[in-house]
């Protein structure tokens, strides 16, 4: 059974100008131990999708569709059952680790209390486990870290503490919302390496929200690309880089400057990202798509599944060859050697 399954999840938020749609039917599934990257630009709905899982969407939001966690719909759970899910089955790591820790409590108290609450361990037992967890996320001076208040630690150090706490209860599912966006690049690399290893060691599935396609590609088994409140393409990182099937994915890959070669001019996607509530029939990307035909503005494309991939484009079949091909600066075939077992 899948750890997580979203089935046609829609989210509307009332506003002064009437209801605004933020998610327009998101469906995805996560197998046990699998990592799925949810990639998109701001306003695409990636964080909002993640928030429907723990029911932390904004107050007043109307959500329809099913969110199945181990087969049980979290959208219909009572308060007590929801609390149990939040405490045991799912943990969340957000962009700002400072929001997760109480600023007036030492790290030791945060970790030990969490362990005692979740597992009913004795104080000594919990302290020993907390120290062990900190060592496993690469903290060398465990004593100092345990005795520190959050403001005395750097962002990278704090995010490690949050990861340690997240894996402590060995949840089945980890929700990570841009966990390294606020960190320096060298720290990001370390924190991602630690998160990746901890996730694999504990066999946790992960839904990883990020704007960084390359970062998601490095740690995820599959990537879902979002645009205007819906998923436009799902594929493995290797498939996405070698042969994207949605025009938006292709253009997203091309418009990012490369570290290895300078472009005379960067290929741009004309216009600006549209919000889900601005879409009026037809394909949401049609107005910015160089391959759009008149029918694209009229007919709404469905997410079509084909051999493990999924694409939401009316012209996916005819464009496949044109959209494939390595983007500038991609070493050919490098992705093939990185396929996961």
């Amino acid at each position: 059974m899948n750890v997580l399954e979203l089935d046609d999840v829609r989210l509307d938020l009332p506003s002064r100008r009437g209801d605004r749609s933020l998610l327009r039917g998101v469906s995805l599934s996560l197998a046990p131990g699998e990592a799925l990257g949810l990639v998109g630009e701001s306003g695409s709905g990636k964080s909002m999708t993640l928030r429907t899982v723990l029911r932390t969407e904004p107050a007043g939001a109307r959500v329809t569709g099913r969110v199945l966690l181990d087969g049980e719909d979290v959208r219909t759970l009572g308060a007590a059952a929801l609390r149990r899910v939040r405490a045991e089955a799912v943990t969340m790591i957000s962009q700002n680790p400072r929001a997760a820790l109480n600023p007036v409590l030492r790290v030791s108290r945060y970790l030990v209390e969490g362990l005692r609450d979740a597992r009913g361990e004795s104080a000594e037992e919990a302290t020993r486990r907390a120290r062990d967890l900190l060592a496993r996320v690469g903290i060398t001076d465990v004593d100092r870290c345990m005795a520190s208040y959050p403001h005395q630690l750097s962002g990278g150090m704090l995010q490690r503490v949050v990861i340690a706490a997240a894996v402590a209860s060995t949840p089945r599912l980890l929700l990570a919302d841009e966990p390294t966006t606020a960190l320096d690049v060298t720290t990001q690399s370390e924190v991602m390496a630690i998160l990746d290893r901890q996730r694999r060691e504990h066999g946790m599935a992960m839904l990883f929200v990020t704007h960084d396609l390359e970062l998601a590609s490095a740690v995820c088994d599959r990537i879902a690309v979002m645009y205007a409140g819906e998923i436009v393409e799902i594929a493995t990182p290797e498939q996405l880089h070698a042969a994207p099937r949605h025009p938006y994915t292709r253009l997203l890959l091309d418009s990012r400057p490369s570290i290895t070669a300078r472009a005379v001019e960067l290929p741009v996607i004309p216009g600006r990202p549209v919000a889900a509530y601005e879409v009026e029939g037809g394909c949401a990307f049609a107005a910015r798509c160089p391959w759009a035909e008149p029918r694209c503005e009229r007919d709404e494309p469905a997410l079509v599944h084909d051999a493990g991939r999924a694409t939401r484009c009316l012209r996916a079949g005819e464009l496949a060859a044109e959209l494939a091909g390595a983007p500038a600066g991609t070493p050919g075939g490098e992705g093939e050697t990185e396929v996961r077992a």
Binding site: T140, T186, Q188, E190, I194, E214, S217, A218, V219, T337
Partner: peptide, 25 residues
């Protein structure tokens, strides 16, 4: 180190050369 830490196609996140970090690993 900066160059090796930048995500790009085929990149994997890595712990830096810090010996202490390696020990933990």
């Amino acid at each position: 180190l900066l160059r090796d830490s930048a995500p790009r196609p085929g990149w994997r996140p890595r712990l830096s050369g810090d010996a202490d970090v390696r020990e933990v690993e």
